[in-house]
Design a protein around this nucleic acid. Structure first.
Length: 403
DNA sequence: ACCTTCATTGGACAGAGTTG
DNA sequence: CAACTCTGTCCAATGAAGGT
């Protein structure tokens, strides 16, 4: 056995010891709520906490800062913020499977935008909710379904979707436009696997969308791209935040709580048809996307091995690869290096005794170290005993042979 | 994170339609 | 009619995304 070999590593250390340190615990009762609840308007705790993982080789270590991802967060709402980069990294492995990308923008004219209010003063008709398109979480979900059912086809048991126009695609809502800041302007961006459309086919699709949604003047734009750089640009554009200010529409901001904005359909297990560096050659900044995508999929970006499983979820039995949250000051102590503004970090590999731990941790680590030393001593003594016995045996043997 | 919610997937089932 | 396919609905298992 390798008694002096590589030592415990950050994630295991984080899981076992960091959490017990006084003051390093996330603030109770619910730090998650302060992170994630959009109704929470206090100052952001984005980046204050991080989680840690190791790859199974034990040689590569990573951390990920926890961010709220709210569009109106001063940090997360920025273009190319960590939250935005993570969204891009999440869809790029899919987009790398399409050679020709179609891009729909489906926009609702003014008159449709504020129908179906579900807040304090709901839009009611004889006590019943007015059905709208894009002014409540429920309506947005229904509208998204309708659009996907047109573009992808209706779902039909094991035969998948039938009657659609595009085998796969993904969509994401934008809530506000560029031209009139603060004017609610919901439009659904759809990226589809498909390029040029014959004009009459495009008109058919538009007519289908207008009929399905019952919006005869629905605004539909279509364009298409085949250069990797253009596709990456679309990924960035579609994933960007538009709801920059909570006060633009507090009602709608609250409606969007727990709204799943990215919607996709079709199979995405196909081959990659273009590489990120091709997009880079066309001037796109793709730094870190590969690594972040890997980490999001639970794979080490440096050696391709899966991230180390720390334990299994009691209820679901699923493997847990990321540690519980630790204070982000540890990233500095570990001299972690951020992966291109993504909020993911590489932690240099180092013997753990070289880390700068607080007294409480050192105590814990020293205990572990003492146990290890004790084990080494016992093992060495046993080896020595066995060696002595063997030597004695040999000696007796030789004496017997000599005589 | 790790729990919850929601969409997707694909099997079971059944009535309608088709074929010989 | 029997056997088969087509089509639609229902449902459980799976998996992704967002937040107590």
């Amino acid at each position: 056995g390798d008694l002096s070999g590589p030592s415990p590593i950050p994630a295991s250390v984080a899981g076992q010891t960091l959490g017990v340190v006084q003051g390093a615990k996330p603030p109770e009762p619910s730090y998650k709520d302060s992170l994630a609840n959009p109704a929470t308007q206090e100052k952001s705790t984005c980046g204050a906490w991080a989680i840690v993982a190791d790859c199974s080789s034990g040689q590569h270590h990573f951390a990920k800062k926890l961010v709220c991802g709210k569009e109106w967060c001063p940090d997360c709402g920025q273009d190319n913020s960590a939250a935005n980069k993570r969204r891009q990294a999440r869809i790029l492995p899919k987009l790398q499977q399409v050679a020709r990308l179609g891009y729909f923008v489906i926009e609702f004219p003014d008159v449709y935008r504020h129908i179906g209010h579900r807040g304090e003063d709901p839009d009611l008709d004889g006590g019943k909710y007015v059905a709208g398109w894009c002014y409540s979480k429920a309506d947005l979900r229904a509208t998204t379904n309708t659009i996907v059912n047109v573009l992808a086809g209706e779902r039909c048991g094991r035969r998948g979707r039938v009657g659609g126009y595009f085998g796969r695609g993904l969509g994401r809502w934008h809530w506000f436009g560029e031209k009139c800041p603060g004017k609610y302007n919901p439009h659904f961006n759809v990226l589809v696997d498909g390029g040029f459309l014959e004009p009459e086919l495009l008109e058919t699709i538009k007519a289908d969308l207008r009929a399905a949604l019952n919006v005869p003047d629905l605004i539909v734009h279509y364009s298409h791209f085949d250069k990797p750089g253009q596709i990456v640009q679309k990924a960035r554009y579609v994933t960007r935040a538009t709801f920059h200010n909570y006060d633009w529409n507090p009602y709608m901001a609250d409606e969007l709580y727990n709204f799943r904005n990215v919607r996709w359909w079709g199979s995405w297990s196909g081959p990659v048809v273009w590489e990120l560096n091709e997009a880079e050659a066309e001037g796109e900044d793709v730094d870190g996307f590969q690594a972040v995508s890997c980490l999001q999929e639970g794979v080490c970006p440096d050696c391709g091995q899966p991230l180390k499983v720390l334990r299994y979820n009691h209820k679901t039995g699923k493997p847990v690869q990321w540690s519980r949250p630790v204070d982000s000051v540890y990233l500095d102590l570990w001299q972690a290096e951020e992966i291109s503004g993504s909020g993911y970090y590489r932690i240099p590999h180092r013997e753990w005794t070289g880390y700068n731990f607080s007294p409480g941790e050192l105590l814990k680590l020293e205990e572990m170290e003492a146990r290890k030393r004790a084990w080494v001593r016992v093992a060495a003594e046993r080896a020595e005993r066995e060696r002595a016995v063997e030597a004695e045996y040999q000696a007796v043997l030789w004496r017997g042979l000599m005589n």
